[in-house]
Simulated assay, not measured.
Amino acid sequence: MTIHARIAELGLTLPTAAAPVASYVPLVVVGNMVHLSGQLPFIDGQLVTGRLGESIATEQGGDAARACGLMILAQLDAAGLLDRVDRVVKLGAFVSSTPDFTDQPKVANGASDLMVAVFGEAGKHARSAVGVPALPLGAAVEVDAIFALRD
Results as ranks from 00 to 15, higher is better:
His35Glu: 09
Asn109Ala: 15
Val85Lys: 04
Leu47Asp: 05
Gly38Ser: 06
Glu9Pro: 02
Val25Gly: 07
Ala64Arg: 02
Asp144Pro: 03
Asp63Cys: 06
Gly80Met: 09
Val132Gln: 09
Leu135Ile: 14
Gly69Phe: 00
Val29Phe: 07
Val95Asn: 02
His35Met: 08
Val30Gly: 07
Ala65Phe: 05
Glu142Ala: 14
Asp144Thr: 14
Met1Val: 11
Ala17Pro: 03
Ala8Tyr: 08
Val48Cys: 03
Val28Pro: 04
Asp151Ala: 13
Met33Asp: 12
Ala65Asn: 04
Gly31Arg: 04
Ala111Gln: 02
Leu91Asn: 01
Pro41Met: 07
Leu81Glu: 07
Asp103Gln: 15
Val48Phe: 01
Ala129Asp: 09
Glu54Cys: 11
Met71Asn: 14
Ala93Phe: 01
Ser97Trp: 02
Ala134Asp: 14
Glu59Lys: 11
Pro20Asp: 09
Asp63Thr: 12
Leu137Met: 14
Leu82Gly: 01
Val118Trp: 01
Asp144Ala: 06
Gln60Glu: 12
Ala19Met: 13
Val30Thr: 13
Val25Tyr: 03
Val25Cys: 06
Asn109Cys: 13
Asp63Leu: 12
Ala140Gln: 06
Leu137Val: 10
Ser96Met: 03
Gly38Leu: 00
Asp83Met: 04
Pro41Cys: 11
Leu135Tyr: 08
Gly110Tyr: 00
Val130Gln: 09
Glu59Thr: 15
Ala67Asn: 04
Val85Asn: 03
Thr102Gln: 12
Gly80Leu: 05
Leu10Asp: 10
Ala19Phe: 05
